[in-house]
């Protein structure tokens, strides 16, 4: 069974490579569907495979950059990426991440970093989960009452409408996302999510995707695609800095990326067959799983935390694959029926 193990030249150890492919695949599926990097899912998986800790985060970030590139290419074909919005937000994200990192260094100096960071993370995840489910509940109520706003169907939370009324110049029109607002809105939102991402030491997709939907006013599908574009750019930057620190195992990156490329197609195409709220609610469930695992870790239930994360990955992955294959089969059936009808004329 030696062929199942691949030698990592830098870490100097053998790793079960089908495990790496599987992790890449799962994160590709989930990341492509939700529009995030998914670092919080990769690290426990790498850990279980016995991947050296020193290389886990850097390898993870580089793989996420490549995977986001594949997903962005696919989303771009669907018209789900607003590049102008993505570039405007990159400014705020980069500055924000640096500010967040400075706050962490300050907390490190006063020796409070560990618990503060974890609890802030938990609070924000709880807020996001609450927001997602409250939004869904409100949308269901509105739909039952027969209230339909706009051409995209019923929406629950519409905070972005209030924020769009702020007309501080320069005003910008974002064609793919389909709205005009002050350029300061996406800049400030990305700055805030960047500060939090830098502070929490995460990529930020988990925070940016709901912020794009609820605060900036992106349709869910555009939020997913645009966020992946941001993850790709920030991931490449992260890959460079972690490589400089010698914390990257290139062979593992490539192996994971191969699995992720296949997974990303499934996750991305599944967005076509899912309504915006389908994506939002599944995303809310992923956030809850992440939050529960962090709380468990805070109280030293590490094995239970890993089980929760890996269980959630398995269930969400299966759900997304079911959406994709069901939708694709339906589309192909309809296409065949149309062709047969045309041939009979």
């Amino acid at each position: 069974m030696d062929w199942l193990y691949l030698h990592m030249p830098i870490a100097g150890m053998d790793i079960f490579w089908p495990g790496l492919v599987l992790i890449g695949f799962a994160v590709g599926v989930i990341g492509g569907f939700f529009g995030m990097g998914g670092a919080w899912m990769v690290t426990p998986g790498l850990n279980i495979l016995g991947f050296p800790m020193a290389f886990a985060i850097g390898t993870d970030i580089a793989h996420i950059a490549g995977k986001s590139m594949v997903s962005t290419m696919r989303h771009s074909k669907f018209g789900n990426v607003d590049y102008k919005l993505g570039i405007v937000m990159l400014v705020g994200t980069m500055v924000g991440i640096e500010c967040g990192a400075q706050i962490v260094m300050f907390l490190e100096r006063i020796g409070r970093v560990g618990s503060v960071v974890r609890w802030v993370y938990v609070v924000f995840l709880a807020l996001i989960a609450f927001m997602v489910f409250y939004d869904y509940f409100k949308a269901v109520q509105k739909k039952r009452a027969g209230i339909v706003e706009g051409e995209k169907g019923t929406e629950g939370i519409t905070w972005y409408k209030t924020l769009h009324k702020i007309r501080i110049p320069p005003m910008m029109h974002f064609k793919a996302a389909g709205f005009t607002c002050s350029a300061w809105l996406p800049i400030m939102v990305s700055f805030a999510t960047g500060v939090l991402a830098g502070f929490l030491g995460i990529g930020g997709g988990l925070l940016r995707m709901p912020a794009l939907v609820y605060l900036v006013g992106c349709p869910t599908h555009i939020a997913v695609g645009t966020d992946l574009f941001e993850v790709m750019v920030s991931g490449l930057y992260g890959a460079f800095t972690y490589s400089l620190k010698g914390r990257i195992e290139l062979v593992a990156v490539f192996v994971m990326l191969t699995g992720a490329a296949i997974g990303a197609q499934i996750g991305t195409v599944a967005t076509k067959y899912s309504k915006g709220y389908g994506i939002r609610v599944a995303f809310g469930c992923a956030v809850v799983a992440c939050m529960v695992s962090i709380i468990l870790k805070q109280y030293k239930y590490n094995a239970a935390a890993a089980v929760i994360i890996l269980g959630a990955i398995g269930i969400i992955c299966a759900y997304i694959m079911a959406v994709m294959f069901k939708g694709a089969a339906q589309e192909l059936r309809e296409k065949k029926a149309r062709e047969q009808a045309q041939a009979s004329f």
């Binding site: 560990g114 993370y121 695992s293 094995a303």
Partner: peptide
Amino acid sequence: APSLVWAAGG
């Protein structure tokens, strides 16, 4: 697992 899984890194 503990330090690895933390979002804040190791």
